[in-house]
């Protein structure tokens, strides 16, 4: 029964990773770049939610929406100012720029809000449900986190596969010039991708702070790197891959922490990544693109 409860808390952590991983994977899929500032968008989202809840006294849903709105605009702005001018630059230049944006956001937060951590107010604290005659307790917070992740995955999959804009996104991820020849405005598709990814980062930030309620300027770094790992593990560019990679990573992390060693957790997590990539370089659900002539 203990194992089951660890497993569930792994799925909870993994759900948060999965939501963040979507931002990495979608941006990679469309713009073919690694947006290393994505983790710091989470951090900004956490501060916005904190101030909305704590200072402005917003109800949770309003605070969440405020955070989503700010992050969405931030994501679009970052893309317009930092990445768009580099559309035809080498990928190394874009990567370094992304790292630069990451440091910029962290330092801006440091300057604006200081290095002292802010304690996020308790949210989503609705008690437990008890299963198996009280042997297994699952908090509603966990259930809400997991349910949010599933709802996001389902909506996003439907959006990408069924809508006109979603089809345009898939076309851009396959071949941008061909997409242009279809009359698709590739720049607006890229903007939309950053908007969705950053909006989801805001959702992840609130879920993250419900679990780990300290808000600091470097809050986004570690979850960012973990979620990026999850995206690669699942196959970067693939939406189901982000889901699978995120869940696996969360589960492995929690199980390793409990049963092996809390110091070695991160080493174990990354070893799994290395192992998977050795046998399947494209990640678990990544597709090898083949062309027919």
């Amino acid at each position: 029964m203990k194992f089951l409860s660890y497993l569930i808390s792994g799925i909870r952590l993994g759900s948060i990773y999965a939501i963040i991983a979507l931002g990495y994977t979608m941006v990679y899929g469309i713009a073919k770049m690694l947006n290393f500032a994505h983790g710091d968008v989470i951090m900004i989202g956490a501060y916005v939610a904190f101030f909305a809840l704590y200072r402005a006294g917003f109800p949770l849903v309003a605070a969440l929406l405020a955070s989503v709105a700010v992050c969405t605009i931030l994501g679009i702005t970052i893309e317009k100012l930092a990445y768009k001018p580099l559309r035809s630059a080498t990928s190394l230049a874009v990567l370094i720029t992304a790292i630069g944006v990451s440091y910029f956001l962290q330092n801006a937060a440091l300057l604006l809000w200081g290095s002292t951590s802010k304690i996020f107010p308790t949210i989503l604290d609705y008690g437990f449900i008890e299963l198996f005659g009280g042997e297994l307790k699952i908090s509603y917070q966990i259930l809400i986190t997991i349910a949010t992740c599933i709802v996001i995955m389902v909506c996003l999959t439907l959006f990408v596969n069924k809508t006109r804009m979603g089809k345009a996104m898939r076309a851009c991820s396959e071949d941008k010039d061909a997409a242009r020849l279809m009359g698709i405005n590739v720049n607006s598709v890229i903007s939309l991708t950053f908007a969705i990814g950053s909006g989801l980062a805001a959702v992840a930030s609130v879920l993250l702070c419900a679990t780990y309620p300290t808000v600091t300027p470097t809050l986004g770094s570690m979850p960012g790197i973990k979620a990026f790992t999850a995206a690669v593990l699942g196959g970067i560019g693939s939406i189901p891959g982000a889901f699978l990679g995120g869940l696996l990573l969360g589960i492995i992390e929690v199980i390793a922490k409990v049963y092996i060693s809390s110091e070695l957790t991160d080493a174990i997590v990354f070893s799994v990544l290395v192992l998977v990539l050795l046998f399947k370089p494209t990640g678990l659900l990544g597709r090898k693109t083949s062309e027919k002539v």
């Binding site: 076309a171 396959e174 071949d175 010039d177 061909a178 020849l181 597709r287 002539v293």
Partner: peptide, 12 residues
Amino acid sequence: QCPEGRRIFAQQ
């Protein structure tokens, strides 16, 4: 334009 090398969207 119908481009050189066809450039169809193979995964759709």
